[in-house]
Design a protein around this nucleic acid. Structure first.
Lengths: 231, 231
DNA sequence: CGTGCGTTTGAGTGAATTCAACGGCTGTGG
DNA sequence: CCACAGCCGTTGAATTCACTCAAACGCACG
């Protein structure tokens, strides 16, 4: 039997929750078939244009996927944290490169292994499809942020998303640098820094050390984030 | 047998080509099972938050999918032209709303019908998955544009993409308004207009009427678009 | 011949960027 | 234990690119 229905989700912010929620059988499959590998900080997991032979799951650590323009401008497409699956593109080649942000342990599974299993069990494809859908929705949400939100809104959306995904609700320990955040949000490092400082001055957050952010006034953050649909 | 391999594609610009190329069997299925419907210009095909019961294919006309913020800011996620499939989110609800841009004919198929077929033929799921992947890659490419490109680069990328998809290589007949273009590219209508005017002054394009754009100097356009990877 | 909508053009503003300097850790080596 | 180098992050000043506000234009339609 197939599981076409993902759990209905009410929120408008599409993070990777959907992916996690729907990982029952794929987790089992991958965990059985995969091989663990350790990567140092800033190691390349795969490069743009490389054949996409494997599927990846973050066991511990954090990963970014990114694209570069010829003049060095970089867009980070997503961050993957513990438990997240990435690299699932049944095309010949990857369209992003993936690097670790911190020392990480990654579970790697050969795509062909999954696929041969899939011929016997269409559940696996359905699961992979659902994963892809979740990634797509995340990308679409991010397009709204990149296209239409100002610096403060971007930063706040980022903090709330990280808070949710790290599930340390009010004390967010960021694995990534300001440059990574900037390249994810389509801002400069200076703007990221200034905006965070301003939020701290406003008493909405506090930043005891640069990588640790305390959400002092979640209501104010939600207010700024206010993604509501019109009418 | 499954078709895991999409045709390898060399270009960096991910348009909907991949979708079209891989539509053999899904086209057959949908065309057989679907019902055609006519929509007037600016008609809503589905709304954000509505249950996603159907899959859609543009027979003729054009469709935009979009998201709104509470203050009216709008981000258009994609345009779908003749032959494109959209609405494939096996989640409970749509995350974008979809409206026709011009009078359109849309083929509609009940998802459940496809799905019951899928239990017998995992090919169909694989096809749907590939469609989703293509949409994801398009979204990721668009994130790079929205996050890191200036107005001129956005306009040029848009024109080249439209030129390719409309396959009237050098004379692009745009179905959408300047406002739609602006909301797709994350710009204002004025900036879109000014940038097009400037390209015309530079002799790179010409605009006999506002919706028709002639690509006079494709090499110059490619130059500006230059998406190349670094090193 | 108006009216209305979509588009263009102009002038001025502003938010984010660029350029530049400074501050504060961390680790290393004297 | 201190000195110093190398990052990373913050802050400041000036600039710029796209935005806002405003008006005019052109075309279609009644």
């Amino acid at each position: 039997m197939l599981h076409w229905q993902n759990p209905a989700r009410s929120g408008k912010v599409i993070s990777l929750d959907a992916i996690r929620q729907d990982q029952g059988s794929i987790d089992d499959t991958i965990d059985l078939m995969g091989a663990r590998m350790r990567f140092a900080r800033n190691a390349e997991v795969f490069g743009e244009g490389e054949p996409a032979e494997y599927l990846y799951k973050v066991v511990s650590g954090a990963v970014r996927i990114s694209k570069l323009l010829s003049d060095g401008r970089r867009q980070i497409g997503a961050f993957y944290l513990t438990g997240d699956v990435f690299g699932l593109e049944p095309e010949a080649a990857h369209h992003f490169s993936a690097e670790t942000i911190v020392d990480s342990e990654i579970l790697i599974i050969r795509r062909s292994a999954l696929m041969s299993d899939a011929t016997r069990n269409s559940d696996v494809i359905a699961q992979l499809w659902n994963q892809t859908i979740a990634h797509l929705q995340q990308a679409q949400e991010h397009m709204l942020l990149l296209g239409r939100k100002n610096a403060q809104e971007r930063i706040v959306a980022f903090l709330l998303d990280m808070s949710k995904r790290l599930s340390t609700k009010l004390a967010v320990e960021l694995p990534m640098s300001r440059q990574d955040i900037a390249d994810y949000l389509g801002l400069t490092i200076e703007t990221v820094s200034r905006t965070l400082t301003q939020l701290e001055r406003d008493g909405i957050i506090s930043i005891p050390v640069s990588r640790r952010i305390l959400l002092r006034d979640p209501a104010a953050l939600d207010e700024i984030n206010d993604d509501c649909l019109a009418a």
